[in-house]
Design a protein around this nucleic acid. Structure first.
Lengths: 148, 148
DNA sequence: CTAGGATTTCCCAATTTTTCCCACTTCCGC
DNA sequence: GCGGAAGTGGGAAAAATTGGGAAATCCTAG
């Protein structure tokens, strides 16, 4: 189960240094590749390849004649790329994914259970402010009685 | 049941000395780790790891295609980190969590039943003033008939 | 088909950061 | 006042980040 936030940087070559503590869980000790893809919220998703497989299968099973599904397929499957970490635990992020997520240098790395989210730092702050700013955040239906 | 307030300090390395009396209850005598995460009110939450587990499970069970839940997941799970106290009973608080809660040195440590809240002292005072200032505090729905 | 150039990939090595442990000081109880 | 425990700070060893450089590969042009 992935959790935790780390602020990391892309270097000049577009390499992203994955936080040390998550490298082994992500790659199962270096034995499996990872998959990087795009999310509608303009962040990237990072899966261990075996965990991505069922997600991709599910997305691809959506009926292709229903036009509403196609944008999702194009995003999730179309942007997906299978990668391996280099010897120093870095990912080479393609220019296409960097452009999509607005990533240039400062990045937030966020654990979300079965995957990690990768955000441009500024965009992350903005989406965080939407929840923390203002007196009381809006509770979505089903969460009203949630207790910490 | 955790309760009580203590004013404590972070040292220059970002280490937080957990009050002596609460160390054993939190870690069950040093046998379990703790989990530190973020709250929308810009404070941090500190759980014994076993007590955090069901909360995380509940948050992660929210539907992930409903965009209203995602900010909550990103906050509660995305910031969560499992930690252990060092030999002197201190927690190393990550720069990300310190930045989120605006913590630099002086901190309030507040028992809240199943967890502790950790506040920047200044922010704590402000939120306290909001309740105690003015003649009669606003009662939320359901609390009108509450009797102390 | 060959040669040159450019790009990519992989690896190494120095600096920086982190982590762990020890020692000193202060506070409280006895 | 004395002993013990806890708070506080510092330091050394280990690990990780970061940048650069060399080799291999691909692409293009002659």
């Amino acid at each position: 189960m992935f959790q935790g936030a780390s602020q990391i940087n892309l270097d000049a070559k577009g390499r992203l240094a994955v936080p040390t503590r998550v490298r082994d869980p992500l790659t199962q000790g270096g034995t499996v590749p990872v998959v990087l893809t795009a999310h509608p919220d303009k962040c990237l998703l990072l899966y261990p390849a075996p965990a991505w497989e069922p997600v991709r299968a599910k997305v691809m099973s959506f009926p292709s004649l229903d036009a509403a599904f196609n944008p999702w397929k194009r995003l999730l499957v179309g942007f997906a790329e299978e990668l391996s970490l280099d010897g120093a635990g870095r990912l080479l992020v393609s220019p296409e994914l960097r452009a999509f997520a607005g990533i240039d240098k400062r990045v937030m790395f966020i654990g979300q259970g079965s995957y990690y989210e990768i955000w441009d730092l500024e965009r992350w702050q903005q989406q965080l402010d939407r929840l923390t700013a203002g007196g009381s955040p809006v509770l979505p239906p089903g969460m009203e009685n949630f207790s910490l």
